[in-house]
Design a protein around this nucleic acid. Structure first.
Lengths: 197, 197, 197, 197
DNA sequence: GATGAATGAGATTTCATTCAT
DNA sequence: AATGAATGAAATCTCATTCAT
């Protein structure tokens, strides 16, 4: 028989398993059988801790939210510094939790979530957009980046680079080369933005 | 009873329905019952035209491939012109086929596809990356964009902007404002790249 | 398109196909799709010539009856001669129509037949038993075989040898060895019966 | 709700139900719905205990094998004694398990079995033939039965009588008359064989 | 006479969920 | 707290049969 855990520990374990499996296996294979098996408990156990599958997904999304919103928004005053901080925070997050990599920007996740849950996530994503958008706006106002180009170009470039890089992060712990590369990348991105002026 | 179509027409219709539904409803709701209902035929009809559900998905992905690879790669010599052409081609494609919007960059789709099918799609995506990458490389060599910044920064910025914009394209036909906006966006992106020099 | 046949020819063709397939493939694979394919017509064609699948089976069983009851019962007066004739008739029949080999004694066939059809076949089998039984009875009365042994022993021995041999007849045309062997077999069986006295 | 059984008991119950139904109803009616209904469980329960229908059939055939190979081959030294033992064992088996009567010699069963399963059964049947054949061979060598007649005549007579009799065994428990008759039958068969000398 | 397209009914299988222990 | 057994509902797939051409 499986080790007995406190209810709270078990809930956590299940939520994390879901996060991991959703990333690894995709949603159509995200069955209660698979979830249970992946942490070595019976399916019935899942339903002792959660009302139904929706409820499990919701818990997983809460966990996702927690991870994604930790230390958000960055404290830095200087807008490009704040973006820089966010950039590296995100990379660090994905390095620590590569399981959420493919979820991080994924709208599909919301399709299997409850309405309420989807709204919460949408709100988080909105917050993130808002933060990036207003940081870039300030940068424009403070003449750090071009003000004759549409803000969306900056917004989507920033997100594109962040996403492009995090998409290729591997499960393995980062090598010094990885660290160096991510720094170079940021510098490149920053230059791109700054030189637009 | 339903209108009778030739086998080929029916296959097409089914494949397109799948493409549409996969975008609209998400994969977990992509049941044979839903597919059949959406085009007003019986489930049995689906299996008259395809071996099994996998086979239906495969046909849908072929159609996707067709759409995505039409007129690819662009003929333009000048690298930034080629990228420009690609940019507008993609926007036009999504405007005409908004149903594939959420698939266009979506890896999830591949999780429900057959191995072979997934490989074909991966190959297409690879082609697209290759095209963008080498266009940007030429632009760098020809001193149109900075050569002291990592190419990935350009690559992901380009993709980020393209994706950011197409993600918000609506099903409705484009207004003159939409047209104007997409042009402005390209000009903005082009400036961003060019000024980096 | 397939060659057009007269209704009667087509009915024959279908009935024979069913007989062949039932032997080769077994009943659970005896689908209308397979029947149609095996003679190169569409399934719809089957239903132009027969009311339903039952009806097709019935026709096949009529054909079976025809084959099995041809020249039955043998004309010979002498009971062992009559049995001998029957023995070789059956072997010749299976050599000519190996497709009915596995049906010849098979009760399973009746489970998929209509009640009426099953009764007709049962009647034929009854006739055959009757013939063998009364031939042996006469042989007993005429002191050709032992009269202190139960007739069933003779009956089942006769049937056992006939069945054992026909079961191993191959589709290929008989070699001279085959012919010789079947004669030896009959002589053996006849001796077995006669010496019991 | 149904009585709860251990997995092993349920598997047994299902396998036996299949054996029973295959005999009673024929294979084309052997649906999972019928199997489930016959033991008063849901269809889903079948698939909790077996991978798929094939797997259920396989289990039934294992059970069949077990029954048929119990106490086989008989220990008796004397070849006709061994055959006698086998003869009565088989009759006792069919009396106890009349459900396997129509399977006992039935090749059709193999057509719905998995390849591996079919091979196992073929092997068992081969063993049985081998046993009967070599017993008769010894009997011939020891001059208990004629050595100028082909062995197959003896083999098939023996099998014919055994089969003929078991085919007509009813589900009801044997009456004293039944017992007496089967003894008479064996004596008759033994005489038939012995007097051939 | 023949067929390609279509389907209702049913067979097999999966999955989230309940229940007794 | 945990689980093994069980299941209803739904998903996938098959098959005999109909219909328009």
């Amino acid at each position: 028989m499986t080790q007995r855990l406190s209810a709270e520990e078990r809930r956590q374990e299940i939520a994390e398993a879901v996060l991991r499996l959703a990333g690894q296996e995709g949603f159509h294979r995200l069955t209660t059988a698979l979830i249970a098996k992946s942490i070595g408990v019976s399916e019935a156990t899942l339903f002792r801790h959660f009302q139904d599958k929706q409820d499990i997904i919701t818990a997983a999304l809460r966990r996702f939210e927690e991870l994604v919103m930790a230390d958000f928004p960055p404290k830095e005053e200087h807008p490009l510094e704040a973006l820089r901080a966010f950039f590296f925070q995100r990379i660090a997050l994905i390095r620590k939790h590569p399981e959420i990599k493919s979820l991080a920007f994924n709208v599909q996740l919301l399709q299997i979530a409850s309405e309420e849950s989807a709204e919460r996530i949408s709100f988080c994503i909105g917050q993130m957009f808002q933060f990036i958008f207003s940081s870039l706006q300030q940068a424009q106002e403070q003449r750090m980046i071009a003000s004759d180009l549409p803000l969306e170009v900056f917004l989507w470039s920033f997100l594109g680079v962040l996403r492009g890089y995090t998409d290729q992060i591997q499960a393995a712990p980062p090598t010094p080369q990885d660290e160096a590369y991510s720094k170079t990348l940021w510098l490149g991105l920053e230059q791109l933005l700054r030189r637009s002026k």
